[in-house]
């Protein structure tokens, strides 16, 4: 993605992006925890135009049995896009991209989870994209983390996520779909805000070492903003009408 020519003005001279945001502004994020009755934990996220539901089951028995680990619990993650999530119908079968994102998100959540208390079990994370805009893996990761906390699975820290990128030679926060398609770089980052550790890091595009540093710092600032919203979602569900504090 070397920055394709397009008729969209990604960044005007006043520093306003194609959807009206400034360079350091994320899209509107709302998260609600505990939206599904049948799952052990769940969350719904709207990250700009992304709409994603996360459901968590477990810890529970592993099927098929050979996947079970006698030393520790395991985590499985399924990322799936609904046929109606994009403008052209998406075939519902898992594509190469979805399998890859599932794997990447699994590995981004794993360091946060304390699964060695539950040997021979599995934690299943299901992520259903109802509507996709750019940066759905970050949105999915943020939702998954809230759903895991809702399910009461022990975690070292929450995982928040946000992307940063480069359009028109400028580092921007939270890449949307247009910017992803026509921009010069896209860097999704998953971050544990209290432990200050990065759990997901991908980069699509070309950056100079200085840009790279700035891009990562920008993404982490975005992650911290998302973290505040995740925190609020959990507090709203569990301590909604509490009095002390």
């Amino acid at each position: 993605m070397g920055g394709k020519e397009s008729d969209v003005v990604l960044l005007d001279e006043k520093g306003i992006r194609c959807d009206g945001r400034t360079v350091n502004q994320t899209r509107k994020v709302t998260i609600k925890a505990g939206v599904l009755k049948n799952a052990d934990g769940s969350a719904y996220i709207e990250f700009g135009d992304n709409k994603i539901i996360a459901g968590v089951f477990g810890p529970r028995d592993v099927h098929p049995k050979h996947l079970a680990n006698t030393d520790t619990g395991i985590i499985r993650c399924r990322y799936h896009m609904s046929p109606f999530s994009v403008t052209e119908r998406k075939h519902p079968a898992p594509s190469r991209r979805e399998i890859e994102i599932g794997k990447v998100l699994k590995e981004a959540l794993k360091p946060a989870l304390i699964l060695d208390k539950f040997p021979r079990t599995v934690v299943d994370v299901f992520l259903e994209v109802l509507q996709a805009d750019g940066g759905s893996r970050c949105a999915a990761l943020a939702a998954a983390s809230v759903a895991l906390a809702d399910a009461g699975i022990p975690m070292r820290d929450m995982v928040s996520a946000c992307a940063a990128g480069k359009v028109a030679d400028t580092i921007i926060l939270d890449v949307n779909n247009e910017e992803d398609q026509a921009g010069q770089a896209d860097m999704p980052v998953g971050y544990m805000p209290n432990l200050e550790k990065v759990t997901l890091f991908q980069l699509d595009g070309v950056l100079t070492p200085d840009e790279y540093k700035k891009c990562l710092e920008t993404a982490i600032i975005g992650c911290k903003q998302v973290y505040e919203i995740q925190k609020k979602a959990i507090k709203d569900k569990f301590f909604g009408d509490g009095e002390n504090q």
Binding site: M158, N194, F238, Q245
Partner: peptide, 11 residues
């Protein structure tokens, strides 16, 4: 003192 916490909070 009792405090509401979520995963990752430093108590």
């Amino acid at each position: 003192k009792r405090k509401y916490v979520i995963p990752g909070d430093v108590i």
